[in-house]
Amino acid sequence: MKAAEDSIVTTAVDEFLAWGKEHSLFYLLFATACCGIELMQTGGPRYDVDRLGMIPRATPRQSDLMIVAGTITHKMASRVRTLWEQMTEPRWVVSMGSCANSGGPFSKWSYSVLNGVDKYIPVDVYIPGCPPRPEALIDGVMALRERVRRYRTLGIRDRDPYVVAGHEAPFGSHPGKEREATR
């Protein structure tokens, strides 16, 4: 009788799901430029993000988190969007490095670089740096985990609406707004 009591844990299903998600953020191995090397080194032996339950996945279908590491050009942008659409919900996006945030060192002069990946996909966390150190990336992921913890799969979601800076999204209405409407 005693043993049975001890082995029962009562919790809200939602909290349980959020707890699970928070501790197993699989990320998409998606590196375009220099920041990708730092992303690799973050997964490497010294910083070892595996200990946070973050395991790189090669396909978007298996990943919860997309770390946009590096410059996104106009030619690449629609592919990024496709990748993001292929991820299963709930999905999160971390924009790593100045290039993904705003175009970084290329924003002023380049004709082919997109000024921020948030023109195409909604971004949850921005990490500044060129490139950000692995510590900064881990810090950004910790901020994201805060967000994941508050995510409710079944109940009322207290997730901030997507904040998209700058221009209108190019593909009709913005994906964030669409999702808000379906909640």
């Binding site: 106009h74 030619k75 942008a77 629609s78 175009g103 924003s107 002023k108 004709y111 082919s112 997109l114 000024n115 023109k119 195409y120 221009h167 190019p170």
Partner: peptide
């Protein structure tokens, strides 16, 4: 991309207004 207009290393190239709906800064 195939549908890009102009040849950027020419000295009289000006920034395009937009590409696929995303305006240039």
């Amino acid at each position: 991309p195939e549908d890009w207009e102009g040849h950027p290393l020419r000295k009289d190239y000006a920034y395009p207004a937009a590409y696929h709906g995303v305006p240039h800064a």
